[in-house]
């Protein structure tokens, strides 16, 4: 197979696969998983050190898990449920802190680290494009003359 044919067939295979994947995934109507469980994963079991309501084997966690189930069945929104838990147990019940108040640091710091790190690498790259000085030019020229 010629080089051009290989490139063409590769592009077709990759393009068609991508197209099918995107079409299937975009028109997908499968429901969002288990809402009760994903809510329980985001709330801390109030009597535990760091376990979530979903993971803790304690009776308190099991009761709260059932409570979340009832709230979901009663048509509460996610925000309603979070608000209820914060009102009852305080902000620390949220395992995924809000991007406000004391939790703001947890949102800004990682993004800042990524930005600073990226800037440093980009800076290294830019620093490399240094013009050679006039002195260096003449040195190179003399060296070439001596060679020639």
């Amino acid at each position: 197979m010629s080089e051009r044919l290989r490139t063409l067939s590769a592009l077709i295979v990759i393009g068609v696969s991508l197209l099918i994947s995107v079409l299937v995934l975009a028109t997908d109507s499968t429901g969002v998983g288990d809402r009760v469980h994903s809510l329980a994963e985001r709330l801390k079991c109030p009597i535990c050190t760091s376990e979530s309501v979903a993971d803790s084997p304690s009776q308190v966690a099991r009761d709260l898990y059932d409570l979340i189930g009832e709230q979901v069945a009663d048509g509460w929104t996610n925000d309603d449920i979070f608000e209820f838990f914060v009102a009852t147990y305080g902000e620390e019940v949220l395992l995924d802190p809000k991007a406000s108040g004391v939790g703001i640091v947890l949102w800004i710091a990682p993004l800042a680290a990524l930005a600073i790190g990226g800037a440093v690498i980009a800076g290294r790259r830019a620093g490399k494009h240094r013009e050679i000085s006039q002195a260096e030019r003449s040195r190179i020229a003399t060296a070439l003359e001596e060679q020639g």
Binding site: E41, R42, S50, E91, L95, D96, P97, L106
Partner: peptide, 9 residues
Amino acid sequence: DRVSVGAPW
């Protein structure tokens, strides 16, 4: 102040 950072974060 107390804040919890768990698996979702």
